[in-house]
Amino acid sequence: MKIVVCVKQVPDTNEVKIDEKKGTLIREGVPSIINPEDKIAIEEAVRLKEEFGGEVTVISMGPPQAKDALVEAYAMGADKAILLSDKAFAGSDTWATAYTLSQAIKETGQFDLIFCGRQAIDGDTAQVGPQVAENLSIPQITYVKGVDIEDDEIIAKRQLEDGYSVIKTKLPALLTVIDGLNEPRYPSIKRIIDAYNKEDTIQTWTVEDFEVDKDKLGLDASPTQVYDTFVPTRDHEPEILEGDVEEKVEKLIKKLKEEKVV
């Protein structure tokens, strides 16, 4: 079974702080991690490989430092890792990202399954997975929290807001996975050392290394553009109720009665 996993290196958004004066994000000192749901995707791919045999290829698009994410993926058991890194990719929105990833996946040859995390914690769009599936003309199952493979068919549990559905489709297919599907393993120290010692464990591809239409890359080709960013604020003064416990409770109830909500 040939499995491709798409991953993204992201800033740990739990660690992001806000510069209140400038109204901007402080990215300095914020650690970069593999997007948490992408780690679940890697784990699921490696588990299927262990069960059915085959090969796991991890692909990421990003700046040169995203190589760290691929080293970690390799150390978790991926066989190959490819970093798509070129100035031409910079500023890609989800459409251009999905195009670039799809072209790279085509270049790697035949595949049976593609795993993606449902969404990345820095963008939360959940768009790249389905867009890759569309570009490759294969079926998709999103929000997957359970996977079963029988011959050339896949049966997946898909999380819904008020329950789940069970969906069957034919391979090749693309699955986006959510938290709870598995518990990702720790990377093997030996494989981390391997990744750094052996050349070519992590390949880096530029626009010259796979077939791409250069007019479909990066910022210029991206249909969406960022128009503005701002830090969310609430435009009123909070009122802190003082007194002993009983007084505070009394004051609160009085306020709520004034507001006519109770």
Binding site: P11, T13, N14, L25, G123, D124, T229, F230
Partner: peptide, 9 residues
């Protein structure tokens, strides 16, 4: 965006 840290238009 960024886990709600930032709003983007």
């Amino acid at each position: 965006a960024f886990g709600g840290n930032l709003m983007a238009t």
